[in-house]
Nucleic acid binder design. Structure first.
Length: 210
DNA sequence: ACATTAAGTGATT
DNA sequence: AATCACTTAATGT
């Protein structure tokens, strides 16, 4: 754990802060597809990803899901930052996309470290900003109904977090993630294949130009 | 060989 | 873009 922390966060945080994280944080390993936070659940810790990836989803009243974004190593969940300020409940669901190792830091430390460590303050503000921009991007894509672009971006994201250009997934799963129907995904994927962006197989999609 | 599940397609709204 | 209805292809038992 100490080595992992040093490797991914050593260049970001000063030594004292790294030590505090080790003292107060708890190391957790999560297997693929395990949910680590559900909607309405009280947030009591914020995650620092060491490796692996987590997908953050939103759900409507019908139980349909929509992917908001992925978090990877070096990332933290921006939603946690807003929620823990007022001890609010989670507005999103978080599911492990791959096997993941992370450190959970109690939310009480958040405010304390904000004043104490400049590097922590920068990290939090920066990641909050990054996520915000990503959100705006996502809204643009949805608002302008550019399904094909949305889909391709999703595939790239998924390939990135899995460190693999061949995704092991079905059209149906993608449709669920993007809150659309399987038929639409199949057609768009077919179009992408024609444009030599991807290759299609059963239960797998290979991304070509990376 | 048969059942099940994933993917492809045309037509319609 | 979504839905329906149907076909085809791959895979498991």
């Amino acid at each position: 754990m100490e080595k992992d922390l040093q490797e991914h966060y050593g260049y970001l945080f000063e030594k004292e802060l790294l030590q505090e994280i080790l003292n107060v944080g708890s190391y957790i390993e999560i297997l693929e597809d395990v949910m680590l936070m559900d909607i309405g659940q009280q947030i009591k810790a914020m995650p620092l990803l060491l490796n692996g990836a987590i997908k953050v989803l939103r759900e409507d009243k019908n139980g349909d899901e929509l992917i908001l974004y992925f978090i990877e190593q070096g990332d933290t969940c921006a939603m946690t930052i807003t929620c823990c300020m007022g001890q609010k409940k989670s507005e999103v669901r978080a599911v492990a996309e791959t096997d993941t190792k992370l450190i959970m830091v109690p939310v009480e430390k958040m405010g304390e470290w904000m004043g104490k460590y400049k590097s922590w303050q920068n990290y939090i503000l920066q990641s909050y900003h990054d996520r915000m921009m990503e959100m705006l991007d996502a809204i643009d894509n949805i608002a302008f109904l550019r399904m094909d672009e949305r889909l391709f971006k999703h595939l790239l994201d998924k390939a990135k977090v899995n460190h693999n250009d061949t995704l092991q997934t079905t059209h149906q799963e993608i449709a669920n993630d993007m809150h659309t129907s399987r038929v639409v995904i199949s057609r768009l994927l077919k179009a992408l294949e024609k444009n030599n962006k991807i290759e299609l197989y059963r239960n797998a999609i290979k991304i070509l130009d990376l």
